[in-house]
Every structure is written in structure tokens, then in C-alpha cells.
Design a binder for these strands. Structure first.
Lengths: 230, 230
DNA sequence: ACAAAAGTGTTGTTACTACACCCATGT
DNA sequence: ACATGGGTGTAGTAACAACACTTTTGT
């Protein structure tokens, strides 16, 4: 372990921008920080990368620890490494965003961490550069979700098309033409219509759909345009 | 500097996947490694992140050091952090890909490093996980270049449409319909036609074009599809 | 009956593909 | 004159946007 002696070592952390959807609105999961510095302030969930694990494993561990869920959709999107970002020690952080159906979330660590779902447009000040991380995560999410159907990761097993539309509208901050959006969604072959309806959102009720997991797995990693043959 | 004492520190490196185009074919810049371990074997250009710099600065420094060029287009794309990837010490690497016009490349460090441009389909075995990094970089480049006109970064100031087409064909490993590709390119408004022609590639000669830098700056950060209004 | 949201139909426009064809020039 | 790429024209098709219209149901 004395190799590369002349080079300085540093701490490597992972921070998670956890997006959640409860069927109505898009939220962010943040915690009240339990350690110094900045103890008691709002923060993203994070942790240090351990000796025996890679960064994906660290992110998984941290996500499971906070939410109680396994196999959460997550994506590494950017390294934040300004020298002074953590005032106590040189710490470089690998940022991940994660997508969760809030209905599946188990508030298992309410004792260890004070975790809270906050609306995306009412995010309090966060420690360090976490605010910047959230902003970058939103951009990455927009980018990715414009080409890949990952927003389904936020939805419950049974969902309605108006719910998806509302989710897209919140992510992109636009109003969609519902008729056209509906057709586009159905043309993907990702949706399996159910016979029953959700009556909460409207009088008439909207049909439930479930995701066709097989075509989903295919389409998550396709969807390109500029070069149309591939 | 004794904060977070209980957490282990590690080495943070940057590795650069440097793509270059010489007007005919797409290449990768690799070096003969000058330090242990694996001294003398083929490797990507890389280096350790220093105390005073962030990872982008480290990558810039390393790129400039090897190529003699400033303001190289580069993009951070993935962290490689398997615990055993460098056998001598726990080292996590932030991978960047870079795009260079080989014509501008100055072989300035031929004494310090034995650097060489190799054809993308004849890459020798590389140390550690560098082969995996190259593969991932190619995928990221394909992804990004399908939506953003970044491949122009590989071209000289004056270039012909057949050259661009050839570049795209090599990146995506397809044959393009030249007439249609030409029209699509010109419809972007990125190209400014020059009056003279390049006679090297054919008898008739192909018109030179230069990039419209203004529209280029706009379009590099646009180009989405699934959500068409933005 | 009517408001409100879900969902269908239709039409004009744009973007793309396929491919026939013409152009300029070195040999 | 002809082979070789460079480049234009055109027609059919698919995807998309706009928006009128119908359906269902709670009040």
C-alpha cells in the first residue's frame, strides 16, 4: 500500500439525488445531516466509498440503507470534485440520481436519519454543493428521459396515462397535448391495458396500464435519432 | 486534515480516451507507459488528481501535456472504481474522452511518452481496465454524437462533406446514403460553403466547408426529440 | 343537464427514405 | 470516352402537431 507514495490520497464519496413520484407530484428525498460538519442541515443522502466496493456498490448500499428498497434504478451522472467543496477534507463525490415509486418507499431509517420527501420546486438550501448536484441531476434526468422510457421507474405497477402525462409535464415543465401524447405512448408497445379504471383523478376514470417488462428492457437501451439506422 | 479519520482514503486518477481524425480515418492516441506497474505496455494517457485541482482541470492538464493543445473538447463520462483495477493501490479513475483534429496535434512529448495514433479497429491490449474504458468511450461518443454535432471537433477548420460522412460511417459502422446525409447536414445551418474544392478525394473535387461557430455553439447543447417542445 | 377529464378522428405539414439522375474532372 | 465520386431532384411514406369531436360519469 505504499505505491505511488508521492501522490496524495483523498476521500471518495457518493451522493444520491433521489427522485420520487407519488402519483401526483415529483419529489426529492433529502435528509437532515447527522454528522459534522453542517450537522442538522438539509443534505443529500451520501456516504464514503469503502475499500472493498466500487462506486456503484457504494451507491446501491446507501440507497438501500435509506429506503429499504433493493434494485433501485440509479445512474451515475457526474463527479463533483472542487477542492474546497467539503471544508473539512478534500472529498470528491460521485453523484448518482435514483428513481423511486414513493408508494414502495419504506421509511425505515426515520430514527437514524430524518428523511423527507420535498417538492421539487420547494427544495430548501442544501449543504456543500448539493444544490448544484440537484440541478445537474434534473438536467441529466430530462436528457435521458427524453430518449429512454426511464420515467416508468417512478410509477407504481399499475398506473394511468394521465399520471404519466402529469409526470412528464412536471419533469419538463410543459403542458402536453394529451391526445397526441397518449397515442405516442401507446405506439411504443410498452403499455398493457388493464380492464379496470382509476376513478380518483376524474369522474369518468382512466384505464390502468401495466408495463410490458420485456419490451421495456429492450427500449430502455435503444431510442436514437440522428443516425436512424442502427 | 484529520477529519473523517475512520474513512479510508484512496488515489483518484483521470484517464483520457483521445479520439483523433486525420481526414481519412478515426484513431486513438495511446502511450507506452513510463512507470511501474506495467511499464512499457500500452496504456491510455492518464494521471493523478492533485490537491489543488478538480477532475476537469486534471484532465485538461493531462491532455495539454500530451498533445500541446489547449481547449480540447473533452467530456467526463464514467468512473471506473473496481477495487482491484490497479494492483498496486486502490485507485479510482474518472474517464474522459477527448476529440482532436490530428492535423493540429503536436507530437510534443515524444521524448517523455511514446505516444502513438492507432486505428480504432487495431487497438493493442491495454493495461488495467483501459480496454473496457475505450469500449465505453466509443459507446458514449456514439450516443452523444447522434444528438449533438460534436464530431466537428475532430475535423480540421476546412473540411468536405464526404469527409464528415466518412467520419460518421466510421463512428457508427454503417454506410450512409450520401445524398440524404448531405442534405441533412446542410439543413442544420452549421456549414458555410467555401468557393474552392478539395481535389484529393476525387476527380471532380468536393467543396470545402467551414463551421458556423455561432450556430454551432447553440446546437451543441440542444437537439432533443421525445419531448419535442422545449 | 352539465362540467370535466378521458379518449378518438381527421387533416395538414414536416421530415425522412429510396433511388434515379446529372455534373465535373483525371486518366 | 468513361469511370469515379460529388451533388441535385423527386416521389412515396411515416411521424407529428393541431384541434374538433365523442364518451363517461359524478354532481
Amino acid at each position: 500500500m505504499s505505491a505511488y507514495k508521492e501522490h496524495s490520497r483523498l476521500l471518495l464519496a457518493v451522493d444520491c439525488i433521489i427522485f420520487g413520484f407519488d402519483g401526483r407530484s415529483l419529489k426529492l428525498l433529502i435528509i437532515e445531516r447527522g454528522m459534522l460538519p453542517e450537522k442538522g442541515k438539509w443534505s443529500l443522502m451520501g456516504g464514503f466509498v469503502q475499500q472493498h466496493e466500487n462506486t456503484n456498490e457504494a451507491a446501491s448500499r446507501i440507497l438501500t440503507h435509506l429506503t429499504g428498497l433493493k434494485d433501485i434504478y440509479m445512474e451515475q451522472f457526474q463527479v463533483f470534485g472542487e477542492p474546497g467543496r467539503d471544508p473539512l477534507a478534500r472529498t470528491v463525490s460521485v453523484a448518482y440520481y435514483a428513481l423511486i415509486d414513493i408508494g414502495k418507499y419504506e421509511n425505515q431509517l426515520s430514527k437514524d436519519y430524518k428523511a423527507e420527501w420535498v417538492s421539487l420546486d420547494r427544495i430548501p438550501d442544501l449543504i456543500f454543493d448539493h444544490g448544484e448536484m440537484v440541478k445537474a441531476a434534473k438536467e441529466h434526468l430530462r436528457y435521458k428521459a427524453a430518449l429512454h422510457p426511464i420515467l416508468f421507474e417512478l410509477l407504481p405497477d399499475r398506473f394511468t396515462i394521465p399520471q404519466i402525462a402529469s409526470l412528464f409535464e412536471q419533469v419538463y415543465n410543459v403542458e402536453l397535448d394529451r391526445p397526441n401524447f397518449m397515442r405516442k405512448l401507446r405506439s411504443t408497445g410498452l403499455l398493457v391495458k388493464q380492464s379496470d379504471k382509476d376513478k380518483d383523478g376524474s369522474k369518468r376514470g382512466a384505464h390502468y396500464y401495466v408495463l410490458n417488462r420485456d419490451t421495456y428492457k429492450e427500449k430502455v437501451s435503444s431510442f436514437l435519432h440522428f443516425i436512424t439506422q442502427l
